[in-house]
Design a protein around this nucleic acid. Structure first.
Lengths: 288, 288
DNA sequence: AAGTGGTCTAGACCACCGC
DNA sequence: CGGTGGTCTAGACCACTTT
């Protein structure tokens, strides 16, 4: 059981408090070999890390409260008698599910329930309209990604205005956005003197309001944060994000495209008018 | 450079075709130590796996076509001069982004672009209405998860009808759904004799249509597939899924709740009326 | 039987945080 | 400085699919 490779067939990993938060005591590495007399039917060779995930998840529900800090990974791995890599695989899952939050140099803490962030308020409005949750940060002119250019129905080499905005909820950054606006959508920028920066971003958005919005169009997909987004979202590169792509229509064409990346670990995107209470927690459920 | 732990500071991993699809040749493990004369400013200590992800991503764009099978992990790792675990970390990222598809016992293939699946057709309809994309599979009676019970505003111990449905697009399963319907929403089930199975599922849904639908409410979040969902979606447990929770309102209360899990690797959820062309590919973009 | 991706281990170094 | 999570390695066995 010491070295060797991937064996399956889990032997019930059990302990009374499941996790002894205090110092490592004598028989901490103990693993109960047989929870029942006869060895269980190994019909479902559950991977170790998956079983660990379940055990930890239950421990999280019963023995920990939000914000509490878990024992460190080396201790936890020792307690459960697995390699650190395996323990980490389980923690990774739980972080993906929004149950845990890990910060380098600090530790692993129990995450609060995901915050519901409203996306697409049903009554369609331009970005920058009064009362929207975004804060303009910057503005530049550049060639957009090919996919965006195609969506905007412009030449692949044509430059557009790119407004960068960020969204903050409860003091934490939850999303970063890039807004692509063709020059044709904001024909008169004479009133804006700032060549860049927040002031210009605001100006471009204000100019955009003058168009009559016909409607919009949204898509959500999973992505991973690039180096830039990661920094803005206070995450590491590769962190999972929900990418919301919105197309704004005016005058029979696509007048602007927004690509917003939301922290997948902390956000629950809500559509429609109602607020929506906490829903969905454990992926292990099924009707009889 | 051989053994040892996490060094950062990437030395440009380069090759002409980037990936020699054929047999491993003599100097395949070669790594160009210095792409430029002076060692690059290591301002951004990019992790190896992240750099690898980028290199592979570009190779995927330029040298591979959809459905093509990549060299196996052991070969790839050797070609790039990294441990298999590190190579796998890069592949994992690319799979998360929907660029790759890995199947045990088969190999790693280039994934087709994500399919756009319509969610919430703007004109709100009951599940099971003519023309919806779901196929009823089963029906049972059981106690729902606590979060669902709360959303339905029923007693935590109260049993509800649970209709299981699945959604198939282009011959591939893309989503699994559990529909929770309180008995009060379908008061007259006398016309349905089947105690369970597809027939009963259809009957319950038909009965649901009789209520007048006031509206609905959607939320999207990241989750991981449980063992059951994983099997239905032809994925391994823990696979990332987009969880869409929909609440259906009728008569001033929540008449039904749907929890649908979509394959996050292959799906792009679309909201609104338009179809939406391919958008968003590389997470490495930014305005100047 | 052979080959693939999936799981697991034991040990190491690194980047970051707070003291 | 010490402690934390993040990255990396080399090697092994396992489950699965195909030949």
């Amino acid at each position: 059981m010491t070295k060797g490779g991937g064996r399956h067939m889990v032997a019930g990993i059990v302990q009374e408090p499941l996790i002894n938060k205090g110092a490592k005591s004598r028989r901490d590495t103990a693993i109960a070999e047989d929870t029942v007399g006869t060895t269980q039917l190994d019909t479902v060779p559950e991977p170790k890390y998956w079983h660990l995930r379940t055990v930890l998840s239950e421990a999280l529900d019963s023995e920990f409260s939000v914000g509490e800090i878990l024992p460190n990974e080396r201790d936890l791995a020792a307690r459960f008698g697995v390699a650190r890599a395996t323990l980490r695989q389980a923690l990774e899952q739980l972080e993906l599910e929004g149950r845990l939050q890990r910060r380098r140099g600090v530790g692993t803490t129990v995450a609060p329930p995901r915050v519901g962030v409203a996306v697409g308020s049903e009554q369609h409005t331009w970005p920058g309209a009064s009362g929207d949750a975004w804060q303009p940060a910057d503005c530049a002119v550049a060639v957009p990604p090919a996919a965006v250019a195609q969506s905007l129905e412009i030449d692949p080499d044509e430059q557009v205005h790119i407004v960068r905005r960020s969204r903050v909820t409860h003091g934490q950054p939850v999303a970063a956005e890039l807004l692509y606006i063709p020059a044709s959508s904001v024909p008169d920028l004479s009133g804006i003197d700032a060549p860049s920066g927040t002031a210009r971003a605001r100006g471009v958005l204000r100019e955009l309001q003058r168009l009559e919005l016909d409607g919009d169009d949204r898509a959500v997909e999973l992505g991973s944060a690039g180096a830039d987004d990661a920094k803005e979202l206070d995450r590491l590169p590769g962190a999972p994000v929900l990418v919301v792509t919105t197309r704004f229509f005016a005058g029979g064409r696509t007048a602007a495209v927004s690509v917003a990346t939301y922290r997948a670990d902390t956000c629950r995107l809500t559509f429609g008018d109602s607020v929506g209470v906490e829903i969905h927690h454990d992926p292990e459920r099924r009707a009889s």
